[in-house]
Design a protein around this nucleic acid. Structure first.
Length: 304
DNA sequence: CGAGTTTGACCGGCGC
DNA sequence: GCGCCGGTCAAACTCG
């Protein structure tokens, strides 16, 4: 957030310098300049305070969200392990995601289950390591289960599952015959406007069209609005473990280093989304327009 | 007419 | 062994 604050200061300084230069050229009085400078500084300070407040609020909300996610993951694990019943939980995807979050979910298994679990985990390790989940914000009215992620997919099935009233679509990668990547797309139970895409496997070929990919990126971010932070927060932990997942869509050029630190990217994304939210806010744009026109009018008055 | 989608049937894993 | 459920197949269908 310091990054953003500093950029804000820079911008305000630029404005001040510009104004100062104009004033000198106009040969205006120094007192007017000082007043103007003070006013701009006060404005800058106020904006900085607002930004700090906003960041604090964001951090609090983020913290709460992370606690909530951790809590629900723990509860899901408990639900899977504590009851003696072996029947598979309907929330299979949660099990997958938790496996990706913290490696394999080595829960407190009983001795009788050990052999079975070891066998099963060995079998699933290969698959689970390559499972990732991506959230896409779509129009609520959009009923198609199409996700623009830069790759070409061939739909081979659709099924209504028990845990979700909306159908789940099954896709295979159609870019290369040898590529066995599969994708499941289903609407979120909580938010029907959110598409949850589960990818299995890794592409053994480059993305067919970088342009398409960029389109997908723009669409993802521009529509991401309220969802992307939640997705980033909920995915954040396992995007660290598997950078090819959600990160692939936002920063495809920076995926190469698996051990890179995620936080600056989150910051960058956050700043972009804050800016996006602000520019989408009619109150903010109206206030900004009023401020700019006011400033221009003020300058015109002083120039005359 | 070919490529892609839809959709009911089928299969295999799992719990009871 | 039976039933449930998710995943896959493939024939029918649609569209450009």
């Amino acid at each position: 957030m310091d990054q953003y604050s500093s950029s804000l200061v820079d911008t305000s300084l630029d404005l001040t310098i510009g104004i100062t230069r104009m004033r000198v050229e106009e040969d205006s009085t120094t007192t007017a300049l000082v007043d103007e400078l003070k006013r701009v500084n006060a404005e800058n300070k106020k904006l900085s305070e607002m930004l700090t407040l906003m960041c604090d609020n964001y951090n609090v909300l983020r913290k709460q969200l992370m606690e909530y996610v951790n809590k629900s993951n723990n509860m899901a694990e408990r639900d899977q392990t504590s009851p003696p019943k072996k029947r598979k939980s309907p929330a299979r995807d949660d099990a997958v995601s938790s496996a990706v979050v913290g490696g394999l979910s080595e829960s407190s298994s009983t001795d009788q289950d050990d052999q079975y679990l070891c066998k099963k985990q060995r079998e699933e390790t290969v698959v689970k390591e390559k499972v990732s989940r991506v959230y896409y914000k779509t129009e609520a009215s959009d009923t198609t289960l199409v996700v623009k992620d830069g790759y070409q997919w061939r739909k081979y099935g659709q099924k209504v599952t028990r845990d979700n009233p909306s159908p789940r679509a099954y896709f295979k990668c159609a870019c290369a015959p040898s590529c066995s990547v599969k994708k499941k797309v289903q609407r979120s139970v909580e938010d029907q406007s959110v598409l949850v895409a589960t990818y299995e496997g890794e592409h053994n070929h480059p993305m067919p069209s970088q342009i398409d990919s960029n389109n997908g990126l723009n669409r993802y971010i521009s529509l991401g609005g309220p969802v992307a932070p939640a997705a980033a927060a909920s995915n954040g932990s396992y995007s660290l473990a598997k950078p090819v997942t959600t990160v692939d869509l936002t920063e495809s050029k920076k995926v190469t280093s698996p051990s890179r630190i995620e936080f600056p990217e989150v910051q960058k994304l956050l700043v972009e989304q804050m800016a996006s939210s602000l520019t989408k806010d009619p109150n903010f744009t109206a206030a900004l327009a009023a401020a700019v026109t006011g400033r221009l009018y003020q300058q015109n008055q002083t120039e005359k």
